[in-house]
Write a protein that binds this DNA or RNA. Sequence first.
DNA 1: TAAGCATTGTCACCCC
DNA 2: GGGGTGACAATGCTTA
Lengths: 103, 103, 103, 103
Amino acid sequence: MSDGNVTALHTDPGQETQQERPASAMDNVSTQRLKSYIERVERLEEEKKGLADDIKEVYAEAKAMGFDPKVMRQVIKLRAQDNEKRQEQDALLETYKAALGIA
Amino acid sequence: MSDGNVTALHTDPGQETQQERPASAMDNVSTQRLKSYIERVERLEEEKKGLADDIKEVYAEAKAMGFDPKVMRQVIKLRAQDNEKRQEQDALLETYKAALGIA
Amino acid sequence: MSDGNVTALHTDPGQETQQERPASAMDNVSTQRLKSYIERVERLEEEKKGLADDIKEVYAEAKAMGFDPKVMRQVIKLRAQDNEKRQEQDALLETYKAALGIA
Amino acid sequence: MSDGNVTALHTDPGQETQQERPASAMDNVSTQRLKSYIERVERLEEEKKGLADDIKEVYAEAKAMGFDPKVMRQVIKLRAQDNEKRQEQDALLETYKAALGIA
DNA sequence: TAAGCATTGTCACCCC
DNA sequence: GGGGTGACAATGCTTA
């Protein structure tokens, strides 16, 4: 296939910014590793897209039942904010307790 | 809890555009249904976020192995474009055939 | 007019994030500048809308001549993708070269 | 060039939905016309993109002067709504006048 | 920290 | 008129 395109950029980690091997290719081991990373990402993104489609379906179904998706989105956003806020308050409380030496 | 906010915007499907019950609430059944939809979406979005995090981790790990995430993204994008383009060309062909009345 | 609404949100650049003058107005110079920016944007968006309308007209005319707008759009998209892809491949090559330290 | 791709769909206008020429191509004149339409659209879209870039620049410049682009967008949106509303009211007024036989 | 980019969400148009 | 699709705008992340 088009896997020939993955002849790509590898640098030994922990070196200064400029690289080794001025104009040549990676060795086979690195190439294999890179290919593996690429494919892992592609697989995960596929799953992610699947979930996005699922979400769309739920909205469609809800809409068919007479609910307004736009409002639903707003509600969900609000609830997410609430959660975040509560978590922040909890974290703050923990900080206080730690600072005051309370178990 | 904050469920009080969801007393909004439900219309029996197949009614005129404006809403019923000017200032009152939905019946319990509708409320339950809405709550169910909302929670399904929230669950799915949580999973989606999880996958996004996984992807980030993969990039971070690859970077730690000396690969350049920026290049990886470009490679993945190119590969995705290949797929998409092929699909669109197929679609175009189908459109042509349909427009020309070919079975 | 409704210009009273624009008495908001101006910060001297290079200051800390929060705003000056808690409940008062901008000075006249800033107000004039803001008005000028707003009007420039509005003018540009008007022109942009004009072009969008022109494009619609072209499609309509082509349709009247017996061409299928849907297919035309697909063709144009494909051609745009060709360009974009070529550019991205060039960019990828540049990235490789930069990463490998090649002048 | 890649102009070979524009061998596309043409139907004599004013016919019923299904088409002539089951599997063949357009004549040269039609091909030329189609090409012309395609290029007109492409040119217009280019200009449109240019304007979009101009708008971005204005926002950037305004931001550099200490204005908040987000707020600016809101202001512009509000003003656009005002205009639209006023125009609707004018149209309504015209309708009234026409209905009442007032010049 | 700011700029650019990628993604995501919203909106409008077109077809059915 | 309603649903689906595609363009546009906006937000958040990534990098310099």
